[in-house]
């Protein structure tokens, strides 16, 4: 469905202010298309700046790098700054906060648990020996193994789309584990044993049931399921 400048689209937005509202509700807003290929985030900004300043959502860089604006648009988790309104082929966009996360207000979720799980995998370079020479060099081939792992922006779309993550409150989730893989398969890192120990656990890699929701949710087109599979293989390789 092609949208043209001047067309109107309805945003049906999840609203909830725990201080005022007894229960969450949906409110309709009319958004005017002002340029070709307008993003959902631009529409949200239009509502907040021109119609209803009480609408609450996170955003920062508006170009898919900061990972602040993960939300559920017409049933699909994504970041609103990378989603064209016209790609939804609909006059109505239902916008909800990320499923499975506690809601603070409107589209803003509580990420504390999500980040606690991220810190479990020690997402930083662990070095046990001083760098040889001036810096830690890496071959082009070794660096290429990190493609598809390092791009994660921690928007929470994958973990929030994962039924295992909804069911098991202790499950680390695809996001934490793709970040574990990012360091385990980095030749410069020396902490892979402790990282694999952290994910080798019934709430870690073995809780993944390859539902594959994380892959379709990831706005950066990464493959967390494959990363979890790589970790599983690495653990089995080191044990047997």
């Amino acid at each position: 469905m092609a949208l043209h400048v001047g067309d109107k689209v309805v945003f049906k937005i999840f609203r909830y202010d725990p201080e005022k509202d007894k229960a969450p509700y949906y409110k309709d807003y009319e958004v005017e298309i002002r340029r070709e290929g307008m993003m959902v985030l631009t529409g949200l900004n239009q509502i907040k700046w021109e119609q209803d300043p009480s609408l609450t959502y996170r955003r920062s860089c508006r170009e898919g790098v900061c990972g602040s604006d993960g939300m559920n648009i017409n049933g699909v988790n994504t970041v609103s700054c990378m989603s064209h309104i016209e790609d939804y082929n609909s006059n109505v966009l239902v916008i909800k906060p990320l499923p499975g996360f506690p809601i603070i207000k409107d589209l803003v979720c509580d990420f504390e648990d999500f980040f606690n799980k991220y810190y479990v995998v020690k997402p930083y370079l662990i070095e046990k020996n001083p760098p040889p020479g001036r810096e830690r060099l890496q071959s082009i081939e070794d660096r290429e193994r990190l493609n598809g792992l390092y791009e994660c922006i921690l928007c929470g779309c994958c973990s929030s789309s994962c039924p295992s993550y909804w069911a098991d409150p202790d499950y680390l989730g695809p996001s934490a584990m793709i970040n574990a893989a990012r360091f385990v398969f980095d030749t410069r890192d020396e902490g892979s044993d402790e990282r694999l120990d952290a994910v080798n656990n019934i709430h870690g890699v073995w809780r993944c049931h390859t539902i594959l929701n994380c892959i379709s949710a990831c706005p950066k087109e990464l493959n967390p399921t494959k990363a979890i599979g790589m970790l599983q293989k690495e653990i089995l390789k080191r044990t047997y």
Binding site: N200, I202, W206, R207, Q232, L236, T239
Partner: peptide
């Protein structure tokens, strides 16, 4: 010590 690794395999 029971990680679920053996069960998975």
């Amino acid at each position: 010590g029971k990680s679920g690794e053996w069960n998975w395999l």
